[in-house]
Design a protein around this nucleic acid. Structure first.
Length: 545
RNA sequence: GCGCCCGUAGCUCAGGUGGAUAGAGCAUCAGCCUUCUAAGCUGAGGGUCGUAGGUUCGAAUCCUACCGGGCGCACCA
């Protein structure tokens, strides 16, 4: 409903000679300011060199809208124009929600755009921790938002299976195999001391036989490296699946090497004159593209830095035809952003091709105290433990409800509590209550048509709730634009609050037939929006709790 | 030392890209309600938007400096 108004205002701006005017059309928090308000007059006042309130009057004069949309306009404050919508317009919105059903809130403005969202991408060296969980929830939420707005989307996981770290896991696992066979052993320098490798070693001996431990060290390490890789990947996939995250593409770093992409990328950079030699190493001139120092691609000992395969990987994504690539990285990698951006800029990719969303660290709280990550005690660190304790819905919701770039306090007690203070519970309960009305009435929500007159909704709560429902498409659009799923959780909490209040105040069943029918339609629409929001975020929308 | 992120009510956080008297939830206080699932309603108190300057009709929002917290700063991955 706001779209028609927005377009009408844009037409007026054009007529007044300011076609590119950037104005805001918003829903005022103060009910006294109408249903919609715009600052267009104040924006135009600058160009027109006229008092804002006078400009506002001429805007209203020039506004051409079909009849039955706006009931009243008003010039207020320094030059805001406030609009009150006609009730027929709201009734039409109610029908629109019910007709769109599960598609309500979707858009197609992203049509034709191919986007890749890469997230988690944990090293295959151990179990996922809570930070990965946050990256997983956020990456998946961003992906879902882009899908809802019509983008063609690929969810991708990058496996760092080629580096030194995986070698060290292989050595560490081999040591644990020796331990499990009752032999002297030593975890190598820089190796992995986690308990999980002990368990893996036992599995290895079960699967491969006791004589596996008798292999020469070199072969044992080599085979342990491969086994560890498979086992850790399986573990991670299982954890991600129980968390509701699935991928379209898994890309192996090793495969990029095997394909010869490394020398190819090096040649590409060199042919463009972007590299130079110094102190026996090969450098990329990233300072020409916004980095604060040049970066080494090939070390003086002839081996490559991690930077080069990373460039090759992004070149690969570009060559696969994506218009846009979004990487979700942990805060500990954010210093790495400028050099990758510089490299891609150097290759001539558009600036909006590459976007990094950084997730800050997660602090887990129990009983008000921080749960420390402790290797010694093996205390609660993994995503699996978290999901086992609070469930996948609460875990996802808590990771999503804050912006990625602020630090997150994950309150375990709150996440588990079955009270209104717990936002997940609160939102899901609102959905369950809407469902409960139909259960008691003995009718399916789908059987209730939305062909109602709005005068049949007598309470101000009816109208407030409906107005909130009509804001949902704007929320998904804005959340997708900003890549911020927390805008959806925030909206759902506001909607749930209104829904609970409405439920409490406005009786549905047993009212006069016209009122009962209209409120059933409103309950149906509310249930649709709550379900769509929850589904978008990868959460369940239970009918009873 | 340098770079990036953050700093808004007692707590946790919003704040639609510069607009109206800075908002919500929780907590506190005073009342009410107990229903289609108890997880609701009304009101009150609570703020130097980290600090100081600047930009302009207008700044929590943009710029500069400083303070505090976090992360990073390799020919590591």
């Amino acid at each position: 409903m706001s779209e028609a108004l927005r377009q009408a205002l844009a037409r007026v701006a054009t007529k007044l000679g300011a076609a590119d005017a950037e104005f805001v059309l918003e829903r005022p928090k103060d009910a006294g300011h109408g249903d919609m308000a715009t600052n267009l007059a104040m924006v135009l006042a600058r160009v027109q060199k006229a008092p804002p309130r006078a400009v506002a009057a001429s805007i209203i004069e020039a506004l051409d809208l079909p009849p039955g949309v706006i009931e009243k306009t008003e010039i207020a404050g320094p030059g805001f124009i406030n609009f009150w919508l006609a009730t027929d317009e709201l009734a039409a919105s109610l029908r629109g929600i019910v007709e769109a059903g599960p598609r309500y809130g979707r858009h197609d403005f992203g049509r034709g755009s191919r986007v890749n969202v890469e997230f988690v991408s944990a090293n295959p060296t151990g179990p996922l921790h809570v930070g990965h969980g946050r990256g997983g929830a956020l990456g998946d939420g961003i992906a879902a938002l882009l899908e809802w707005t019509g983008h063609q989307l690929t969810r991708e996981f990058y496996i760092n299976d080629a580096g030194v770290q995986i070698d060290r896991v292989g050595q560490s696992l081999w040591a644990r195999v020796q331990e499990a066979a009752g032999r002297p052993f030593a975890i190598p320098e820089g190796g992995y001391h986690g308990e999980y490798l002990r368990e893996d070693a036992v599995k290895v001996l079960e699967r491969e036989g006791r004589e596996f431990a008798d292999l020469p060290d070199e072969e044992g390490v080599r085979r342990c490296r491969a086994l560890a890789l498979v086992m850790q990947r399986e573990e991670q996939d299982r954890d991600l699946a129980s968390f509701g995250v699935r991928y379209d593409v898994m890309t192996s770093e090793q495969a990029i090497y095997d394909r010869g992409a490394i020398p190819a990328t090096l040649a590409l950079l060199a042919s463009r004159g972007l590299t130079f030699e110094r102190d026996g190493a090969l450098w990329l001139r990233t300072t020409d593209f916004g980095d604060d120092q040049d970066r080494v691609l090939r070390k003086s000992d002839g081996s490559y830095t991690y930077f080069l395969p990373d460039i090759a990987y992004h070149v690969d994504k570009h060559d696969r035809g994506f218009d846009r690539v979004i990487d979700v990285w942990g805060a500990d990698h954010h210093g790495y952003v400028p050099r990758v951006r510089a490299a891609l800029r150097a290759l001539g990719y558009p600036d909006d091709f590459f976007h990094v969303t950084v997730v800050q660290l997660v602090k887990v709280l129990r009983g008000g105290d921080e749960v420390k990550m402790s290797k010694r005690s093996g205390e609660f660190v993994t995503l699996r433990d978290l999901v086992d304790e609070v469930g996948p819905d609460a875990a996802r919701y808590f990771f999503l409800m804050r912006r990625g770039d602020s630090q997150l306090n994950f309150d375990l007690d709150l996440a588990k509590s079955q009270t209104e203070e717990n936002p997940v519970f609160y939102v899901q309960m609102a959905h369950a209550r809407m469902s409960g009305i139909f259960r008691v009435a003995g009718v399916a929500p789908e059987a209730v048509d939305a062909d109602v007159r709005l005068d049949a909704l007598p309470a101000p709560e009816d109208r407030e709730l409906l107005k909130k429902l009509t804001a949902f498409p704007e929320v998904t659009a804005r959340a997708a634009r900003d890549l911020e799923p927390n805008k959806v959780t925030g909206y759902l909490e506001e909607l749930a609050r209104l829904a609970h209040g409405w439920y409490h105040k406005c009786r549905v069943l047993g009212e006069p037939p016209e009122v009962e029918h209209a409120r059933l339609a409103l309950a149906r629409a509310t249930r649709i929006v709550l379900a769509n929001g929850l589904t978008l975020l990868g959460l369940s929308a239970p009918d009873r709790m």
